[in-house]
Amino acid sequence: MEIAVVDYKGGNVQSVLFALERLGARPTLTADPEVLRRADKVLFPGEGEAASAMQALREAGLDQVLPTLTQPFLGICLGMQLLGQHSDENDTPMLGLLPYQVRRFVPDADHKVPHMGWNNLQALRGPLFEGLTEADHVYFVHSYYAPVGDYTTAQSSHPAPFSAAVQHRNFHGVQFHTEKSGAVGTRILANFLAL
């Protein structure tokens, strides 16, 4: 199975590569549209700031390529947010595959920003969460979030509910770090590879 990880100089991809290797996969880190098109699965990790990530995608021509992919696709963290329409983070237009506007959390006495640490998932649905329950925890680090909508396949809250995972056709996204979420994250990655 050919597994491609999108390389756009946009964050820490090494952890995702190692996590895939622990599952016995041999991922290819690439920005080559041809390699991406023929891969069986595509993973799109993201970290950092939305506007510079979109800029890096445009420079690599990937803003045109990614929306045309047809195999199972997984955006992680910022990689999930970028699937939406627009982010409040530096007023950034994004890929537009999903209809959400990405918002910033508002801190209060009990809710620090970034939302950093382990939180539960609720209202799980879809193949990525096969074998998991609402008692399971995943690891989040983010200051911006996608609101809950028809596309939401798992939610969490801080304290407002937000999309912990989304799906539209072949495009899946998770706000948490599958590669850093222990056995639960490993199961979600394995479920994705089995799609």
């Binding site: 939302h115 950093m116 640490g117 382990w118 939180n119 539960n120 998932l121 609720q122 925890h137 989040f140 969490s156 809250s157 801080h158 304290p159 509910p161």
Partner: peptide, 9 residues
């Protein structure tokens, strides 16, 4: 009534 981020060790 809603999930909260956990205290970390």
């Amino acid at each position: 009534t809603y999930p909260v981020v956990k205290k970390r060790l």
